[in-house]
Design a protein around this nucleic acid. Structure first.
Lengths: 336, 336
DNA sequence: TTTATTTACGAAAACGTAGTAGTATTTATT
DNA sequence: AATAAATACTACTACGTTTTCGTAAATAAA
């Protein structure tokens, strides 16, 4: 089954490659009869223009990359879903890369992407990334990056975020209004903008309600589930136990559920839990979990759209802009 | 920031393009001094070989596609995760396409992929696909397809599946042994091999335990959540209610949870529920859900590996083979 | 009839890479 | 000293597509 290309079509029809190419593009240079013959033959043999050869002409891959830190967070799934929809619509192709929260992998991936494989990148930082030179390198190679959620302030570009500070504030205030006096904050990484902002919201809410801030109530978790389990267990078995937990990300809340289950700590009676999460099953958990739901699909779609907006009119400088799409607090059983 | 290619390097160094190319490939034809100079310059300017130009030479894109029906099923996430790991390892790139269970979208996507954009495809069928000519077309264009989970029997290729029949049998038998006398099966689509096999397992288990098969106990669900909700609600409000439900896929079990919650049907007291699922939160649901967990990560990795095995030694005919990776039954609260 | 214009096509170059073939220059062999 | 062989490089081509430019033939205008 030899490949069907312009040359093949041309030789089958006894015309030149140029003629075939132009006929397929409905060029005025080609006569009606010839056009018809070419079109028919192309259909018959199932001709499809080779995308890589096209790239050679246009220097445009019609491909973008999405780089995400992990696949176990339902937020990212929805982002991919949103991004894929827009990409399909625009006839772009979407490459997926997972850093597994590993800065080195992120660097390797970004370095690989500097060779023109993609026209642009949408990404969310790994929580272990502290140096941003691989990102600058991409920008310098003229490959635009649009960030979503876990953004990099250092890079001047479009960033799709949610109202992390306000949501962190609202989440904490909700716990306070639900009767919590001693709220712990589960941080995932001091490197992440979102984590810091959510924590700022948390701290500000404490201040507003005259609850003393306590550094020991800020638990620095990591990407290691077992270590997180231990930290949360320590927190919940200490002499002075918190009565509320605000988890910065979904999996820390689930670990909290796990610890509570094992220690037989009743949620919400003894401990109220709230977290940022896009879990489809939040409603069916025991107890149903109060969440701040990020507009993940919209964020993915927005990131892709913004990227395409720039790619469509290449040459225009991408502007440094934060696009905020608000999250929503859904009160469920874990804070009642 | 003009692009760094071989030509640029050559002109900067005052040597020919061939020399640069060969030096970078550590060819014996190039002297040590020249090699060193080229390597240094390449590093300095951040030269990265253009993948599309490479494609033109080798007719190999180093890219594969994964085509999945939806993103809301945790099974597929884990498959992507497994596939991406293997792809990274092999220095392949992974394009992602979502059919949203829409046969037409699947056809469009597969048609797009016949132009050489990818070296191979791994996919799981949409549940609305009934005609397979788009798949045959890909095979005819010499683009190998490896199926996972939702396979197409018609295509002779490698298929990664789990032991659906045995698992369906085991799930049903587990319900029976937990005391169920009247078990309903929630089907997602008669088009799907997995659904049929799971149902066969269900039916055979009923036979073995002398429970009469009843067509009305096989609920044909669709991709529409609302309609599924209604069907399950009807099932659970009828004069003769089942005491067990075996959901063929995750989301039907969640809809069952939803209906049960709304109707205040106690699980597992009044209704036992089991399903195929890879939910990370199965343990924390109310009640924790008994699941048959598919080795999703392994299946994704296996599918990618098999595809690469074939791509590595192109020309060898891909053989028609079923690779079975067993699922595991995890008993939790919903069947106690 | 001669010249201008339109129509319909083909030749060739370019995109970036890599390999084949060719060629000076140096070094080794007889 | 004459020839063979090794070394170190360059020119050129192909991959598939698109487009610019060139041109022959047909038609229109003078």
């Amino acid at each position: 089954m030899s490949k069907v290309n312009l040359k093949k079509l041309a030789s089958e029809l006894g015309v030149s490659i140029s003629t075939v190419s132009k006929a397929l593009k409905d060029s005025y240079e080609i006569g009606q009869d010839t056009k018809k013959k070419v079109l028919e033959k192309a259909k018959e043999l199932g001709y499809k223009a080779n995308p890589y050869a096209r790239y050679m002409r246009y220097q445009k891959s019609s491909t973008i990359a999405i780089v995400i830190p992990e696949m176990t967070n339902s937020f990212f799934l929805q982002v991919i879903n949103g991004a894929e929809s827009i990409a399909r619509e625009k006839d772009y192709h979407l490459l997926i890369y997972i850093t597994h929260e590993d800065a080195q992998k992120e660097i390797d991936i970004l370095n690989h992407l500097q060779n023109g494989r993609v026209d642009g990148i949408m990404m969310s930082l790994s929580c272990t990334t502290t140096d941003y030179s691989h990102l600058h390198a991409c920008i310098n190679s003229n490959i635009p990056i649009v960030f979503f959620d876990r953004i990099c302030h250092e890079i001047e570009t479009v960033k799709i975020i949610t109202d992390d500070f306000a949501s962190g504030f609202a989440a904490t205030e909700h716990l306070i209004q639900s009767g919590c006096k001693d709220i712990a904050y589960l941080s995932i990484s001091g490197n992440l903008s979102i984590d810091n902002k959510r924590m700022q919201g948390y701290l500000e809410a404490l201040d507003k309600h005259n609850i003393k801030q306590d550094k020991r109530r800020i638990i620095k978790c990591t990407n290691d589930d077992k270590s997180n389990y231990k930290k949360i267990k320590t927190l919940l078995t200490g002499s002075k136990k918190p009565d509320g937990i605000f988890a910065s990300i979904e999996k820390l809340a689930l670990t909290t559920y796990s610890v509570s289950k094992d220690l037989e700590i009743k949620i919400p009676a003894k401990l109220k839990v709230i977290c940022f999460s896009n879990l489809a099953t939040a409603d069916f958990l025991n107890p149903p979990m109060t969440t701040i739901t990020q507009p993940a699909n919209e964020m993915g779609a927005a990131a892709a759209s913004q990227l395409f907006k720039y790619l469509d009119k290449k040459g225009t400088e991408i502007k440094n802009e934060n696009i905020v799409i608000k999250s929503a607090l859904t009160v469920r059983g874990s804070t009642l």
